[in-house]
Amino acid sequence: MKSKLLLILSLSFYLFSCNGQNTHIPAAVTSAAPVKINRFDKELFKLVDTGDSTRQAEITGGYPQMLDVLGKGILNMKSPAMPGFFDKLTSYYSEPTLKSLYADAIRQYDDVSQIEQQLGNGFAWLKACFPSMQIPAIYMHVSGFNQNVLVGDSLLSISIDKYLGEEYPLYQEFFYDFQRRLMTPEHIVPDYLAGWLMSEYPFEGKENVLLDRMIYEGKIKYLIHQAFPELTPEQLMGYTVASYNWCKENEANLWKAIIERKHLYTPDQMTTTKYFDSTPSVFLSSDAPGNIGSWIGWQIVDKYMKETDATPEALMQNNDSQAILTASKYKP
C-alpha cells in the first residue's frame, strides 16, 4: 500500500461558537465507545532508555508503519530497513534534554483513558458527518518539538511532548506565551481530529491566495468546534479572553483593512503567510492576535453554514472559496 505522509507542524485553533442553526450538523457526541491509543511512545522509550537492541525486532514487528512514518517525518530516513536506522533513532532520542522531555511526557500521559473517551466521542461525531470516512488507528509519539501530528495510511499519531501545559519549564525557555496557550492537554483531541480532517480533505486551493487559505482553515475550525462545543472559542484559538473580545469588536475593521490593502485575492505568499503565523498580527493592528486569517475564515464559514444549511460533507467538498464567501453574505 502506497504510504502517504502528512506533516502538520502546528495546528492553530479556533474561535466563534456556532448557535446550532444548521439542521444538518449532528449534535456533539458524549457517550461513544472509547478509541484505543496504541502507545508507540512508551515502547520506543523502552528501547532508547535500555539500549537493548533485542527490542528492535519487537518494535519493528509491532509498529512497522509507525516506524516508517516517524522515520520519514523526523529522521529523514526513507525506510526502517535502511542501514543505521535504529542507530540514528536511538541517537536522536538519547540527547539529554530530549530524553528528559520524553520521560516527562510519558509520565504525564501514563493513563490516557480520558483522552481515549474523548477521541471516541470526536470520531463518532465525524462518522455521523462523514459516513464513508475511515477511522484511523491512533498512536502517540514524541518528536522533540518536531512533527506535531503524523498521518499515514489509516494511521494518526500525535506528539505528546507538545501538550505538557503552559507552565512546563522547558516551554518557558523556547516558546512565547501565545504559543504555550496551545500546548495544553485540552488541545490533544481537537488536534487529533483536525489532523485527520486535513488528511482526508487536503488543501486544494492556491497557497499564496489569502481567501483560499482563510476558507480552508475556517472549515477545519468550524467543524472541530462543532465536535467539541464545550471548549471556549478563545481556548481553541489559543487567544486570551481580551484578544478574542478585541477580534469580535474589531471584525469589521479587520475585514475592511484586508479589502483596502487588496490582500484577499492578490497572490502573494509572503503576505498570505503572515495571516496564519502564531505571532501577533501587528501588520494589521498593534492589538491583533496571531493566526487572524484562520479566525476570519471561521467567521465566514460559520455564516456560510447558517445561510446555506449545508452538510459538513458538502462543505468540505466545496473547494470554491469565492462561492463560499459570496453565499455566506459575510459583511461584518
Results as ranks from 00 to 15, higher is better:
Met1Ser: 08
Lys2Gln: 10
Ser3Pro: 14
Leu7Asp: 14
Ile8Arg: 06
Leu9Asp: 15
Ser10Cys: 12
Leu11Thr: 05
Ser12Gln: 09
Ser12Cys: 09
Tyr14Trp: 14
Leu15Gly: 08
Phe16His: 13
His24Trp: 01
Thr30Pro: 14
Ala33Gln: 07
Ala33Ser: 05
Asn38Asp: 03
Phe40Met: 00
Phe40Ser: 00
Asp41Val: 00
Glu43Ser: 15
Leu44Trp: 04
Phe45Ile: 02
Lys46Arg: 12
Leu47Val: 03
Val48Cys: 03
Asp49Thr: 02
Gly51Asn: 03
Arg55Gln: 15
Arg55Lys: 15
Ala57Cys: 03
Ile59Tyr: 05
Gln65Gly: 05
Val69Lys: 11
Leu70Tyr: 15
Gly71Phe: 15
Gly73Val: 07
Gly73Cys: 14
Ile74His: 04
Asn76Ala: 12
Ser79Trp: 08
Ser79Ile: 07
Pro80Lys: 13
Met82Ile: 08
Pro83Gly: 02
Gly84Tyr: 02
Phe86His: 06
Lys88Asp: 10
Leu89Met: 03
Thr90Val: 08
Leu98Trp: 04
Ser100Val: 01
Asp104Phe: 06
Gln108Arg: 14
Asp110Lys: 08
Glu116Gly: 04
Gln117His: 01
Gln118Ile: 10
Leu119Met: 08
Leu119Pro: 08
Gly122Val: 11
Ala124Ile: 01
Trp125His: 00
Leu126Val: 10
Ala128Lys: 15
Ala128Thr: 07
Gln134Asn: 07
His141Met: 02
Asn148Asp: 12
Leu150Met: 09
Leu150Thr: 02
Leu150Gln: 09
Leu156His: 13
Leu156Ile: 12
Ser157Asn: 07
Asp161Pro: 07
Lys162Met: 06
Glu167Arg: 00
Tyr171Leu: 09
Phe175Gly: 04
Asp177Leu: 00
Gln179Asp: 02
Arg180Pro: 00
Arg181Leu: 01
Leu182Thr: 07
Met183Lys: 00
Val189Leu: 14
Tyr192Gln: 11
Leu193Thr: 10
Gly195Thr: 11
Gly195Leu: 14
Trp196Val: 10
Leu197Tyr: 00
Met198Asp: 08
Ser199Tyr: 04
Glu200Ala: 02
Glu207Ile: 00
Val209Trp: 02
Asp212Arg: 04
Asp212Pro: 13
Arg213Met: 11
Glu217Asp: 06
Gly218Asn: 07
Lys221Thr: 00
Ile224Asn: 01
Pro229Cys: 07
Leu231Glu: 12
Thr232Lys: 13
Gly238Met: 00
Val241Asn: 08
Asn245Ala: 12
Trp246Met: 14
Trp246Phe: 13
Asn250Cys: 10
Ala252Gly: 10
Ala252Val: 08
Ile259Gly: 11
Leu264Trp: 03
Thr266Pro: 10
Thr266Leu: 05
Asp268Phe: 04
Asp268Met: 03
Gln269Thr: 04
Gln269Val: 02
Met270Cys: 13
Thr271Pro: 09
Thr273Arg: 06
Lys274Gly: 09
Thr279Glu: 10
Val282Trp: 11
Ser285Gln: 04
Ala288Trp: 06
Asn291Phe: 14
Ile292Val: 02
Gly293Tyr: 15
Trp295Met: 10
Ile296Met: 03
Ile296Ser: 00
Asp302Asn: 05
Pro312Ile: 01
Pro312His: 02
Leu315Tyr: 05
Gln317His: 09
Asn318Tyr: 09
Ser328Val: 06
Pro332Ala: 15
